[in-house]
Structures are given as structure tokens and as C-alpha cells.
Amino acid sequence: MAKTKQEKLDLKAEKQYYKKHKKKTKFTVGDIIFNIINYAFFGIFTISCIFPFYYLFINTISDNALVRVGAINFIPKGIHFQNYLSLLGAGEIADAFLVSVSRTLIGTSLMVVISALAGYLMTKQELWHRKIWYRFLVITMYFNAGLVPTYLNFLMLGLTENYLVYILPAIVQPYNIILVKTYIESIPAELEESAFIDGASHMKIFREIIWPLSKPILATIAIFGAVGHWNSFMDSILYMSGTPELQTLQHRLYIYLNQTTSLGSLMTGGVSSSTAGAVMEGVMNSKVIKYTISMVTVIPILMVYPFMQRYFEKGIMLGAVKG
């Protein structure tokens, strides 16, 4: 919609007015006190949110001897990245990292595809007994059989001590399906109808119209799904207690955090080359190992966070619309 000349002029005048007006705004003493307190509060809270990550990070890249005596508080000293290299060379952590990454990638992509397909099918009035199936799906959000019956169910299905326990139960997410369904309903129906008249099948419509058009919502659920997969550790604790090589990174971290004794065995046990083992022994103390594993666990989240922030925020708004 093109703006008329008069409208443009009005806008300009308005802007000028506000500019002028703003300059004239005077702060009262109350305003100044309020602002100081307000800025100070948010500043401190923000620092409390970000400083722990910084603290962990500088301790993992500083001289390990200084870290042990607690000399690294604000500024890193003797910067090196050997800790990360050694840790990712250690078998256990590399395995756990691989398990976490693979479950995140596989689990999330399957969940997104299934949510998209199910959401699309749920918008189809023709679907045989659509309403019944929709309720069948939605009701599951409001009840939960409980921890032990779920555990026994997985035991019965042979999913315990099995990698698939990370993937299969999380594929169908009713909440995400509802989100996608709501989104697809907002896509103009004419698009689909015209494709239908041209002889496209449902699968083709889904692939070529629905999927590309619902990418924003799919990106949102993908990010939430990925964060959920990456962070989940209860499933690993519950169902992988007997299979250390399939435990997730979060579970490994939990185990190490609770180990008060020396963590040297992790290094000597996992490192294949003897030189690497020699570097590790005595050099990396338990504090550094704990911090480094924590960083390895948190870095993927911190790295994707800035790019994904708008989707995160969109996600909570979608929840609000629904809630």
C-alpha cells in the first residue's frame, strides 16, 4: 500500500515532534532513583546468569595447577586447550558425546517429520473418524501412567539397555502435532485445493505445499525437540544403568559430578595412546575434568542459542496461544 504524500509528511512531522518532545523530557529525582535501581537489578541478575558459564570456561582453559588452588576467578591465566583435546580423546566422553549428538539429530528429525505429517492429516476432514483419533491423541497429554509402569512397559518391549529408547517414545508428541495442525489451518486452503484439482496426491501436497509453508513452526518444534533431547538425562539414568557405552553426555556428567574420588581412572581407562595418558595423569585434576565435561555439555546449547533465540520466543508464544 503506497503512502500518499500527505501521509508521509504527517509521519515526518510526528517523528519530529517526538524527537523534540523526547529531548524536553526531564527526569525527576524519583525517576533517576528508579532507573538506577532498575538498571542495577537487571544488570546483577544478568551477570548472575552469565558469569557461571564464563567462570567454568576460564577454568577449563587456564593452567591446571592454578585452577586446582582456586587462583582463577575472573581472568584466565596460561591459556591452553589441551583439556578439551584430552577429554574428547578419552573413550567414554567421546562415546557419550556421540550418543547425545546422534539421538538429538535422529530423534529430532523423526519427531519433526511425524509431527508435520500428523498435523497435516489432522486437518483433513475426510480422515476416517478424525475426531476420535484427535481425542485419542490429545488425551495423552493429560495423564501419565507413572514412572514404574512406564519402566515396566519398556522392559516388556525390550527397550531397556537399548538405544531405541531414546528415539521411539519421543517421536509422537501430541503437543507439537497440535501446534503444527493449528499452523497448517492458517495456511490458505485455496493453495491446497488448486493443487488437488491439478491432480496432486495427498503425499505430494504434503511434500510440496504443506512442508515448505509450515517451515517456521517446524523450525520451532525442531529446536525445542533438539534441546529436550540434548538435555534429557532421566531416560539414560532409568534405562541405561547397565550399558555405560550408551549413556548420554548429561548422564556421564551427572556421574562424574557425584564422584568424589579421583577421576584419573576415566582417563587411563579410556585413552588409547599411552602418550596421551601420560599427559593426562596428574595434570588434569578432578576439578578441571568436571568443569571441562560441563563445558562440553553446555557449549552446543550456547552456540546455537543466539541463532535460535527468535524461535525460542516464538515457541513460548505459540504455547501461550494454546494455553
Binding site: C49, F53, N231, S232, F233, Q250, H251, Y254, S294, V298
Partner: peptide
């Protein structure tokens, strides 16, 4: 301030 929401409780404990 939204970052802590996206880390797991294990990591909160690590912190």
C-alpha cells in the same frame, strides 16, 4: 536471562 532455561538440571548442578 533466558539461557539458564535451556540447560539441563545436571548442568545447573554443575554450576
Amino acid at each position: 536471562t533466558t539461557i539458564p532455561n535451556f540447560i539441563s538440571w545436571v548442568l545447573v548442578y554443575a554450576i
